[in-house]
Write a protein that binds this DNA or RNA. Structure first.
Lengths: 217, 217
DNA sequence: GCACAGCCGTACCGTACGTTACGGTTCGGT
DNA sequence: ACCGAACCGTAACGTACGGTACGGCTGTGC
């Protein structure tokens, strides 16, 4: 199965406007998003919505893909990999990821996809996973493997190492937000969490190289 | 705010039957659960459903509380606390928790609550969190604090330690299941994951006492 | 035996919303 | 200036479902 990662290439400027409006409405209204509401809020006709997106499912799918195309995790960058650089990079990933999953937009989209999972053909959940968790893994694994090649960390399976990192970063934050708990960390807390997760990950997988005790945050 | 943890005390046998049927239907149908469907499936009339539960929201709330009353995490038990006992207890918690959150029932219920979060007054999300994540924390924290008192582990904040343990146990499993990914670990994998999470948690928080190198799993 | 309460099954009502259809308007091409 | 395509705004249709009403059945207290 091929998941359309959708960089919003085939969309006209007007269509992007409509999707922006729909996304904003989704964040505000949640799953009560209605075709009439989108049309009114986007100043377009329902007929146009149906022509462009085929129906409600198509619109929702387009919204998910459109938002995904706007999420950009820190590019990997192929610089030298020493211990401080690795820590900085992991911390950056963690902070970016926390910022994404705690954003109202991401929460609304994940709620939509969760509620929609297992029903219908569109399978928004698959798309959200492809653009979220799996996209993150795709970006992070090369970093982990480069670090392993440089002797900084040790693990058998990059996938397992990634999942541990994921757990250390996300913890209970995402599920709590999805379930409506007010627990959204702001800037400073996110930075602190990212640093803690990185430290813990390196404590679990890091290789104690030489005496080098410096730069442990 | 007081959350009704609901041990199903005020329910007649017949009402439990109805809730069981409704829960089964919820697992099968997802959010498309309909009052008519519940009535048909439970061999009762809609009038009775409305009389007993007040409406759809009331029924959903009753379903959530009813299922929560059936979930039992390993009781804490106040035995001696040495390193192997601590590891065994953590592993037990982790395995129980993984079994719960990966069960189709839990997935269906969490999907329902997530989709329902932020809308309406019932606030199923709050109930699910109270009976899930927070109930787990309530059970686990005394164990962690007893272990700290015994000098086995070290941490400043039991809440933070719990959240780390939670992350190490759950990782990406729950969000993937909620989003419809087929990634349900079965018995052996759950046991392995529980052991790994426990080992990692003790590696992060455990106090290296004396030479004692035995019993590291 | 009988009145009555509780419940089942079903029919019914009102609404919300997805979907379709249509008249009017804007705009680019010729 | 004219034509056609695309699009806006709105009205209309059909259905699904939450909620309500009612007739019939069963079991229990007197």
């Amino acid at each position: 199965m091929v998941i359309e990662v959708g960089d919003g290439e085939g969309l006209s400027a007007r269509q992007r406007q409509v999707l922006d409006a729909a996304l904003a409405l989704l964040v505000a209204e949640g799953d009560r998003l209605t075709m009439t509401g989108v049309a009114r809020c986007a100043n377009c006709s329902k007929e146009t919505l149906y022509k462009w997106f085929g129906g409600r499912d198509g619109l929702l799918t387009a919204i998910v893909q459109w938002q995904a195309s706007g999420v950009r995790i820190a590019p990997v960058g192929t610089g030298t990999i020493d211990r401080p650089a690795l820590a900085a990079r992991l911390e950056r990933f963690a902070a970016d990821w926390l910022a994404v999953i705690t954003s109202p937009t991401s929460v609304a989209l994940n709620r939509l996809a969760v509620g929609h999972a297992g029903t219908g053909e569109a399978d928004l959940g698959r798309t959200v996973l492809a653009n979220g968790r799996f996209a993150l893994a795709r970006r992070l694994k090369p970093v982990l493997e480069a670090a392993r090649a440089a002797g900084l960390v040790a693990f058998d399976d990059a996938e397992e190492a990634f999942r541990t990192f994921f757990g250390l970063v996300v913890r209970d934050v995402q599920i709590r937000l999805l379930l409506g708990d007010r627990a959204r960390p702001e800037g400073a807390a996110i930075a602190a969490d990212a640093a803690r997760a990185t430290t813990q990950f390196l404590a679990l997988y890091g290789v104690r190289s030489r005496p080098a005790r410096a730069g442990q945050t």
